[in-house]
Design a protein around this nucleic acid. Structure first.
Lengths: 322, 322
DNA sequence: CTGAAAGCGCTAACAG
DNA sequence: CTGTTAGCGCTTTCAG
């Protein structure tokens, strides 16, 4: 294993110079001559130097690595975020402290650990209870003390932690894609199944007119039981694949064929989408990219760079139901 | 943060004694008086001592942290393993190097990183290509050099890396549960849909007699199209939920009602299971436990303890289809 | 059985 | 701009 000392001896320099040259902190990095730094960096590459993170952490008095909190795995999306985060961390040589759960307990334990351990930074999924003063307050204080944080897929437009950077999916655009697709198909009547959200507003914008919003299976059933469509298909944009699956179930129970008499578009491209009797047309979100970009953003923040929010565009996956 | 020195001062002892008392290495542990050790351990708990893993790693000359390789996330199972691994690592204060993928490239990059970094240990999912000499050989060499490794859910009965500990699901028992359930239901005829495997053999044992095995949707369709069951339901044990979903689709296309005219049991309790028009009766594997136990096993191995394979028992989740 | 001391590789003051 | 120095918390000799 190559150490700083090896490089220093090789070049006849002091260890500290090498350390400074190889550290990303821009403030200190000015303190090394450009030529020297270049020589050092070249030698580091040639000798396959990799920083001993344990030693760096020890010296810095804080544990190195990033704390990651993801919601409980209800579908494969979490796995995909984890994949992105894992790969990003690997690239940056950053160890992970990974916590997955969807309860306040898990989250507050995570916060406790992170504060206690003062990791290099935090990546946190934006769960609803982040708004609770006790938990959100911890995060806020973490950022105030100079902690670096990335929030994943923040749906809460009215909730923002100062200093935190958001990385997520452009949900409004996802809804737009669904609405626009139905407009192209010339669907005579469109319904949205799910709560008021960016997705819903996107659907309305894409379709071109305000779309009635349904919140319960009963309301969906009532629409399907209507007999006034004149043979034209009912169209539904759902806020998730599982809601779209619910629509499909209700349709099948009534002998209506998905993709012909009832059109539906899901959201997420989860495993549900492909495993339905009529595989769902849906909106895919690249959660792998979300994870990857989150680590990238965090590592830039730690290096002292200015980082902007990242919004990733979803895409329409066309299958059998619309 | 409590350090060894804090404890030493509190008790009027030397740091080295405290270190020895708190280290799990059995050889050295003899060198502390039993009473002293008890006092030290109590004080450590009282003062909420947590070992600084970075310092320990530095001193021991190896990078701390465990390398984890999981397959690409096709369903929520990977997320659940990740959850278990994350929580286990958090408890042990072990950083993670997480790699998720299902290609040789990702895996070999993972191996390269891990060897280079000499992590505390490795947790690897047993992918088919582990059998390839190049990749399996790397793992084998890693273990030979004293590296600690845990293999997850090893399906390859004829492939075993010496020194590695297996943590996984008792698949044969999972099959047994399905077979036994059909026997209780007095299903007249049972088919297995999937490849020859522990699951299949378990199904046969649970049902009490050898069960015909089908490998393609066409074969399933042929069974469903038979007209000789005398009104009794066909029963299927599938090797996965998605295969069970396939059976359900074929049944619905023929106007047969799942749970009445066609019985089916899936495997995995994935999201597919609950989102089918007729939610699947299935076998649930506790992948969270798998992840948790894997870290536990690895950390024991690192501490020099003797560790045995861990087999976790799956359970039957009864829903609408059997 | 316990204590003193050295040093893992790195960073950050400070002095030159 | 570069070098010197002093540790971070822990483990491991080696003396007592």
């Amino acid at each position: 294993m190559t150490t700083l000392r090896d490089i220093a001896e090789e070049l006849g320099l002091a260890v500290s110079v090498v350390s400074r040259a190889l550290s990303p902190d821009p403030a200190k990095s000015a303190a090394v001559a450009v030529a020297t730094r270049r020589r050092i960096q070249e030698t580091a590459v040639r000798m396959q130097y990799r920083k001993n993170t344990a030693a760096a952490a020890l010296r810095k008095g804080r544990n190195i690595g990033i704390g990651v909190w993801l919601p409980e795995a209800r579908d494969r999306l979490v796995g995909l975020i984890a994949k992105g985060v894992g790969e990003g961390a690997m690239r940056e040589n950053l160890p992970l402290f990974l916590s997955i759960g969807y309860t306040e307990d898990v989250f507050s334990e995570f916060i406790r650990m992170s504060s206690h351990y003062a990791h290099s930074g935090l990546i946190s999924y934006a769960a609803p209870f982040i708004r609770f003063p006790e938990l959100g307050g911890e995060l806020r204080r973490y950022c105030e003390r100079g902690g670096k944080m990335v929030m994943l897929s923040c749906y809460f437009e009215d909730f923002q932690i100062p200093g935190a950077v958001n990385v997520g999916i452009d949900d409004e655009y996802g809804g737009f894609l669904a609405g626009a697709h139905f407009r192209e198909l010339a669907a005579p009547e469109l319904f949205f199944f799910g709560v008021e959200s960016k997705r819903y507003r996107g659907v309305c914008r894409g379709f071109g007119t305000p779309v009635p919003r349904l919140e319960s299976p009963e309301q969906v059933a009532a629409v399907l039981d209507r007999n006034d469509s004149g043979g034209k298909p009912f169209a539904f944009a759902a806020a998730s694949d599982s809601l779209a699956a619910e629509i499909q179930r209700l349709a099948l129970q009534r002998g209506l064929t998905p993709g012909r008499e009832v059109l539906m578009i899901g959201y997420n491209d989860s495993e549900i989408a492909t495993s339905q009797p009529w595989p769902l047309t849906t909106i895919r979100q690249d959660m792998y990219q979300v994870g990857l970009q989150a680590v990238g953003a965090l590592s830039s923040m730690v290096a002292g760079e200015e980082v902007k929010d990242v919004l990733i565009k979803p895409e329409l996956i066309r299958r059998t139901t619309a």
